[in-house]
Write a protein that binds this DNA or RNA. Structure first.
Length: 106
DNA sequence: AGTATGACATAGC
DNA sequence: AGCTATGCCATAC
């Protein structure tokens, strides 16, 4: 496996429960803000221990590629974790977007 | 081995 | 302010 994938998976795994992160942020923490595409691809190959449902695009919702898997599952999973959804069907990034691993300070 | 595509994002116009 | 073009890494053909 590529170290990039492992890095991305590690970051995704570090996402606290009830919080979501965007591809851009993961990519940024991975080392390159433009790695967003690779992040998505990493999610494609992401093992079950990676909460890919906590990884969303900058709109706050999973991409269409995840839709066939059941976007309701996505919403249900996040709701189960205490994440609120907007009427748009997207997560309230303003409230639930993960601040980042480099600033775990309250 | 090279080209094309992909769960996105940012910058430029 | 909205759209187009480009960047990045890895996989598939």
């Amino acid at each position: 496996m590529s170290p990039t994938f492992e890095t991305i998976w590690a970051l995704a795994r570090q996402i606290p429960r009830g919080r979501v992160a965007t591809y851009g942020q993961l990519a940024r923490w991975a080392g390159n803000p433009r790695l967003s595409r690779v992040v998505g691809y990493a999610m494609h190959d992401a093992p079950p221990d990676v909460p890919c449902h906590r990884v969303v695009n900058r709109f706050g919702g999973l991409s269409d590629a995840f839709a066939p898997l059941g976007r309701e599952s996505h919403r249900l999973l996040l709701q189960m974790e205490g994440v609120a959804f907007l009427p748009d069907g997207n997560v309230d990034l303003e409230q639930f977007q993960w601040p980042g691993p480099g600033r775990p300070h309250s």
